[in-house]
């Protein structure tokens, strides 16, 4: 079945929702981990490999994005709105890649082993340095808050489009195929 040109490619849509679920879990695990005593270790042990999976997935998304045709913006979006949407997309991509890298770098600088599963671990990507560790540790937190805010902005915008403008903007990213609404087009 030919793709509806108003929808993102299926790979893009699958990657989007998989990433959404992983990022949200990650943000909540990250927040809970810092304030949990009994589950601290379990959450950290989950946080590390999940972060690396997000990094890999973000790179796959970036590659996928360059090789797929994007659906056009709907006419309900003004020029300014389109600029904001593009900028926020760039911010989200940057954070998806930078946050895990900062986490990996921070553990490297803090002389921690970067344990994934069982005996599997990653090499350090930065030299051991207390100052570097302290700076990256703070950066990691600040970026995580920024990502959470960017997510809230993203969600607010889509809800605004669905409920107030009612332009079916979500159809572009829906996992199920959506019939084209441009029946009048040849």
């Amino acid at each position: 079945m030919a793709r509806n040109p108003a929808q993102f490619a299926l790979t893009s849509r699958l990657l989007h929702w998989l990433m959404a679920a992983m990022l949200l879990s990650m943000l909540f695990i990250g927040a809970a981990m810092v304030t949990s005593l009994g589950n601290y270790h379990r959450l950290v042990a989950l946080h590390r490999p999940l972060g690396i999976m997000i990094l890999v997935l973000a790179i796959i998304r970036l590659v996928n994005r360059t090789f797929t045709t994007l659906p056009p913006f709907p006419p309900t979006m003004s020029k300014r709105e389109r600029l904001i949407a593009s900028a926020s997309e760039r911010l989200l991509y940057t954070l998806m890649i930078a946050l895990p890298l900062v986490g990996w770098g921070m553990l490297s600088a803090g002389h921690y082993p970067i344990v994934m599963f069982g005996p599997l671990h990653l090499p350090p990507i930065l030299p051991v340095s207390p100052t570097l560790y302290a700076v990256l540790r703070k950066t990691h937190t600040i970026m995580a808050y920024l990502l959470f805010l960017a997510f809230l902005g993203h969600l607010s915008a889509i809800l605004f489009h669905i409920l107030i403008i009612r332009d079916r903007l979500l159809d572009r990213m829906a996992l199920w195929p959506v019939r084209s609404h441009n029946h009048k087009d040849p």
Binding site: P74, H181, N182, K184
Partner: peptide, 30 residues
């Protein structure tokens, strides 16, 4: 581009009361 014309026409059809309710719902979710 003339697609979505049926959709964009919906904007005006929300009463201001509905709009306030929906904005409140969005705020509540966030």
């Amino acid at each position: 581009m003339n697609d979505n014309d049926g959709q964009s026409g919906d904007i005006g059809r929300i009463s201001s009361g509905t709009m306030i309710l929906r904005l409140a719902a969005i705020a509540l979710v966030i």
